[in-house]
Amino acid sequence: MENKPEVGLLTVKKETIERQVYLTLRREILESRLQPGQRIIQDELASRLGTSRIPLRGALKALEANGLLTLDAKGYYSVADFGEADIQEIYSLRLLLEPHAAREAISKIRDDEITRLDHVNQAMKRAIIDGDRDRWTELNEEFHLTLYEACRQPRLTRIIRDLWSGRPTVSPIKSTQDLEQSAVEHSEMVDALNSRNATKLENLVRSHIEQGAYRWSEYRSSRHR
């Protein structure tokens, strides 16, 4: 008699594949491998990713919910294009929420979490040396979200996560010098955490985000010259 997998195990496997597809497509969109306005051909995409249409559809719905894809009246997905107004909205919200979350984290973050942030930043420096920008992008997100989650305010961090999930990335267009400067700023944040200097940390996070907004704006301008 054939042994059939339990329904629960099938569900876990489906969700795992769907999550992997989601993360792969999200990275390709944020790093402009899938271009703004590009239509998503599901059969081609499923074949390229080595998956079936079912987890792919779930991943596409999640990407639409995060604002990275649009769905037209005929049911076709396309990669969303971030205009200047979108950039301003996202970065304005980040400037409101992330410095506040960082300040709140000062009195609540554990020593082992500060150590983890330092280790993540060291790994980012190695990724720069190796020229691995995919890895750098993943670690950059891990650094920031680890910091903000230390504020122990789940509603706040959920909103911040949503902003990061659908944000336009600037990392692929940064020079090596920009990446190195980002690592320096991360080190300064770790120092502020170790000294429990809330004002310094808040200002560092705010400046860090402002620089990201400026770089993205410059990139948008260069594309339309």
Rank of each mutant, 00 (worst) to 15 (best):
P172A: 14
Y214N: 10
R158A: 15
K125R: 15
R215L: 13
E15H: 08
E84P: 03
T176W: 05
E98D: 05
R158Y: 09
V21S: 03
E202Y: 03
Y77D: 04
T24V: 09
F82I: 04
L30I: 10
A213Y: 07
T11W: 02
A105D: 09
A198E: 10
S32K: 08
E188I: 03
P99Y: 09
V120Y: 04
R94H: 06
I109N: 00
A127I: 08
K14D: 12
T146C: 06
N140K: 06
L147Y: 01
E185T: 07
M189W: 03
Q42L: 06
A101N: 01
A102I: 04
L34V: 09
F143G: 00
A85I: 12
S221K: 15
I40V: 15
T51M: 00
I209P: 02
E64W: 05
E28D: 13
H224I: 08
R103V: 05
A213R: 13
S78P: 01
A105V: 08
R94G: 05
T24P: 00
A198M: 05
E18I: 04
V205G: 01
E31P: 00
N121K: 02
V7K: 11
R161M: 09
S107A: 12
G75A: 12
E202C: 03
V21R: 01
L34Q: 01
I41A: 03
L147C: 03
R39V: 11
R223W: 06
A73K: 13
L10C: 11
L96W: 12
T157C: 11
K4W: 14
T137R: 03
S175R: 12
Y77F: 14
Y219T: 12
S182A: 15
A198G: 10
R39L: 09
L145M: 13
Q38G: 08
D118A: 12
D72L: 07
S171Y: 11
I173N: 00
A105H: 00
D178C: 05
T176H: 11
K14Q: 15
L69E: 05
H100K: 12
I209A: 07
L156A: 06
H224K: 12
D178Y: 07
L139T: 04
P99I: 10
R152F: 12
I129E: 13
W216V: 09
L63R: 02
D111C: 06
V170P: 00
I29K: 01
L96E: 12
E44Y: 12
Q20H: 11
W164D: 04
V7H: 06
D86Q: 13
W136C: 01
Q42N: 07
T115W: 02
H224E: 14
K13M: 14
Q122H: 10
T115Y: 01
Q211F: 10
A198K: 05
L69F: 12
A80V: 05
R135K: 14
L201R: 03
Q177A: 15
S175H: 11
S165D: 07
T16H: 08
E202S: 13
E180H: 06
E28F: 07
L179V: 09
L97H: 08
R39D: 12
R152Q: 15
N140G: 15
T16L: 15
L71H: 09
R110M: 03
D134I: 05
S171N: 10
E2C: 08
T51I: 10
S175P: 04
I87A: 13
A192N: 08
S217F: 05
P55N: 11
I41R: 07
W136V: 02
Y214R: 14
R126S: 14
P5C: 11
L25K: 02
Q88W: 12
